[in-house]
Simulated assay, not measured.
Amino acid sequence: MAPDTKEDIPDDANDHCPGPESEQAGKDDACAGCPNQEICATTPKGPDPDLPAINERLKHIKHKILVLSGKGGVGKSSFTSQLAFALSQDEDKQVGVCDIDICGPSVPTIMGVVGEQIHQSNTGWQPVYVQDNLAVMSIGFMLPDQDDAVIWRGPKKNGLIKQFLRDVEWDELDYLLVDTPPGTSDEHLSVSTYMKPSGIDGAIIITTPQEVALQDVRKEIDFCRKAGIPILGLVENMSGFVCPSCHGESVIFPPTSGGAQALADELNLTLLGKIPLDPRVAKSCDTGVSFMEEYPDSPACQALEQIIAKIHSLIGTA
């Protein structure tokens, strides 16, 4: 990421770091012994020449939302996909999903488009359409075999994310949802750098109730604040279990430190809502259908609807 302020210098950099954009990056005396020395010395300096093309492509997208966590397995992809299905219920709205989880692309499965292929034209890459107003882009469409491992270093991952944003012909979208992998690493730095100039509405941060998840989510919140990404709010996923038959509630992951509500209060954030665990969500994701259409009366669906209403209000689309 090309930093704009001293705050963007890596935490493990030396005290007198000249900054990764400096011509002396990796060469200054202060760089000796820094773990980032080789990276800084070999990284091209100055503004990315592809940013104008990315900005031109993204300027036709009204609202851009990142779905983040820091923790794996909390339901980022399932939330992103169900949010996309819900937004696309309005036939007058165009929705896109960009899956930048390079090593674990699950969006094609969750959205029912496994085995589809990307087509290229003289205007760019064509995303895969789930329905007329819902398009998806993922590396999963590029793999010869769905079981193939993607064993890439950071620069190659960054290059593909840049292509997704620069070369995909999204046309005029009302919403672009970006599904991210766990952590605060290459993919997150890249998407932040490339998308910020054209404007990001904000990030939705997904967690589960237990402290072991909240610890990683705190790091993601810190990343957003250092990168200047607005946080729309937190979503507590798998918040208890509601029996589909009797609607009895059970606590599966005890919120020993207060769960997402306590974290939101501590860090002055909005809790968008809590989604109870429902095994039918997993079934819908495995079969690539909209959970909200299949089970509209379920408590999980009602929780999702309330969260979506808050998102609309926050980004001014209510």
Rank of each mutant, 00 (worst) to 15 (best):
residue 68 L to I: 04
residue 135 A to D: 03
residue 290 S to A: 07
residue 127 P to W: 05
residue 147 D to Y: 05
residue 252 I to L: 15
residue 151 I to Y: 04
residue 80 T to S: 14
residue 101 D to Y: 02
residue 257 S to W: 07
residue 98 C to A: 15
residue 46 G to V: 09
residue 169 E to F: 01
residue 263 L to D: 03
residue 226 K to N: 13
residue 14 N to L: 14
residue 215 Q to G: 05
residue 211 E to H: 10
residue 244 P to K: 08
residue 311 I to P: 12
residue 263 L to N: 05
residue 116 E to W: 06
residue 87 L to V: 04
residue 24 Q to V: 06
residue 69 S to N: 02
residue 36 N to T: 02
residue 220 E to V: 00
residue 71 K to R: 10
residue 260 A to P: 10
residue 128 V to W: 08
residue 127 P to T: 04
residue 4 D to V: 09
residue 45 K to Q: 08
residue 286 D to T: 02
residue 286 D to Q: 10
residue 32 A to V: 14
residue 185 S to H: 15
residue 141 F to W: 06
residue 296 P to C: 10
residue 87 L to Y: 14
residue 290 S to P: 01
residue 22 S to L: 11
residue 314 L to T: 01
residue 169 E to I: 00
residue 94 Q to L: 01
residue 101 D to E: 06
residue 1 M to A: 14
residue 33 G to E: 11
residue 229 I to Y: 00
residue 118 I to E: 09
residue 271 L to Q: 02
residue 200 I to A: 03
residue 298 S to M: 12
residue 4 D to P: 10
residue 297 D to S: 14
residue 93 K to W: 07
residue 10 P to D: 07
residue 201 D to W: 05
residue 58 L to N: 13
residue 65 I to A: 07
residue 104 G to M: 12
residue 296 P to K: 07
residue 207 T to D: 02
residue 145 D to R: 11
residue 317 T to S: 09
residue 27 K to A: 08
residue 70 G to S: 06
residue 115 G to T: 01
residue 173 L to T: 01
residue 276 P to I: 11
residue 270 T to R: 10
residue 95 V to M: 04
residue 126 Q to N: 11
residue 9 I to L: 11
residue 236 E to N: 06
residue 121 S to G: 13
residue 86 A to D: 11
residue 299 P to G: 11
residue 277 L to A: 02
residue 8 D to R: 13
residue 79 F to D: 03
residue 290 S to N: 03
residue 254 P to R: 09
residue 179 D to M: 04
residue 278 D to L: 13
residue 38 E to V: 11
residue 230 P to H: 07
residue 281 V to T: 03
residue 62 K to M: 06
residue 245 S to L: 13
residue 213 A to M: 00
residue 152 W to C: 11
residue 131 Q to F: 05
residue 307 I to W: 06
residue 131 Q to A: 05
residue 31 C to M: 12
residue 253 F to H: 10
residue 49 P to I: 07
residue 273 G to I: 03
residue 222 D to A: 12
residue 136 V to S: 08
residue 62 K to Y: 12
residue 274 K to E: 13
residue 231 I to L: 12
residue 122 N to K: 14
residue 2 A to F: 13
residue 139 I to P: 04
residue 50 D to N: 15
residue 113 V to T: 15
residue 187 E to K: 07
residue 213 A to W: 00
residue 2 A to L: 14
residue 305 E to F: 13
residue 124 G to H: 09
residue 131 Q to I: 05
residue 270 T to W: 01
residue 290 S to M: 01
residue 218 R to Q: 15
residue 102 I to R: 01
residue 83 L to N: 02
residue 67 V to P: 02
residue 317 T to C: 04
residue 107 V to P: 00
residue 42 T to M: 12
residue 34 C to L: 07
residue 121 S to H: 08
residue 213 A to S: 09
residue 128 V to Q: 06
residue 68 L to W: 02
residue 273 G to D: 06
residue 299 P to K: 10
residue 273 G to F: 08
residue 125 W to I: 06
residue 253 F to C: 07
residue 41 A to W: 07
residue 152 W to I: 06
residue 227 A to M: 09
residue 125 W to N: 14
residue 232 L to K: 00
residue 277 L to K: 08
residue 316 G to K: 02
residue 70 G to K: 04
residue 280 R to T: 08
